[in-house]
């Protein structure tokens, strides 16, 4: 299935008085990896948190405009359905501390009270862990607590937890910023694999990372979407002076 999966229309987001996102209009295609880049405080994280409506959890947060997933507005969709459609992985690995590795992977089913047969559950766990290349490392310790894993493994576990629910879009909020280079490399490989099945929107501070893994890159600056283009094109031939300055390291 080709085509647009996510579309925003003149989308703005505020925290109280201050506007953090200004009139963002963007179209994201199915099965592509979009990197969201920009200096600190430019609204990257807010942008992806708006897509699964996590933004509104903050007190005083408001939005304007519309976001459509598969041509349905996220504001008319059932919140629970929306969040199952759109998985999210956070900056710091956050496996559930009271659950084993196994339970963490199927946490979405357990916590939602979705009944699965034991064999189905085993299958979901194995498939999800294999997909994030964690299966071989943890297959003998499935019933240990998820928090005993290393940071990189925990992060892959969190990705497994998200994809076990079969989302269509995966939001990654600087997933490697708390990890060492080896774990980072593993996650990047993983993103490359995952793109076959999912649409991925990844916030990153790391320009090399954006260059390595993304098809298109969106450059945000002070809450505005300055430029959105093929990653290679944006890096070689930035249209905007601010983009140029950022990617050449003049500020950031």
């Amino acid at each position: 299935m080709e085509g647009t999966i996510l579309k925003t229309f003149n989308f703005s987001a505020n925290f109280g008085e201050s506007q953090v996102l200004k009139n963002i209009s963007i179209e994201i295609n199915r099965n592509e990896v979009v990197a969201v880049m920009g200096p600190s405080g430019c609204g990257k994280t807010t942008f992806i948190r708006c897509i699964n409506r996590m933004h509104e959890l903050t007190q005083g947060a408001t939005v304007n405009g519309d976001i459509r997933v598969d041509d349905n507005s996220i504001y008319t969709m059932n919140l629970i359905v929306l969040r199952r459609k759109i998985g999210m992985v956070f900056q710091h690995p956050n496996p559930f501390p009271t659950m084993s590795i196994y339970q963490n992977v199927v946490a979405g089913y357990l916590l939602n009270g979705i009944k699965l047969k034991k064999t189905e559950r085993d299958e979901v766990v194995e498939r999800s862990l294999k997909r994030v290349a964690l299966w071989d490392e943890v297959k003998d310790d499935l019933h240990k607590k998820g928090t005993f894993l290393s940071g990189g493994q925990q992060q892959r576990l969190c990705i497994a937890r998200s994809i076990s629910m079969n989302p269509e879009i995966l939001l990654l909020d600087e997933p490697t910023s708390a990890l060492d280079p080896i774990s980072t490399a593993k996650i990047e490989e993983l993103i490359f694999e995952l793109k076959k099945n999912y649409t991925i929107i990844i916030v990153t501070h790391n320009m090399q990372q954006a260059g390595r893994i993304s098809d298109r890159t969106a450059f945000f600056y002070l809450g505005e979407l300055l430029e959105f283009n093929d990653t290679t094109e944006l890096f070689i031939n930035p249209k905007h002076e601010k983009t140029q300055n950022y990617i050449t390291g003049r500020f950031g």
């Binding site: 559930f96 916590l111 939602n112 009270g113 629910m165």
Partner: peptide, 20 residues
């Protein structure tokens, strides 16, 4: 982040509080 992790899996608020 624990609460957010649960909510982002589509778990309703009351279940998030009670189960996570």
């Amino acid at each position: 982040t624990l609460k957010e992790a649960s909510l982002s899996l589509g778990v309703p608020y009351y279940r998030t509080i009670l189960k996570v």
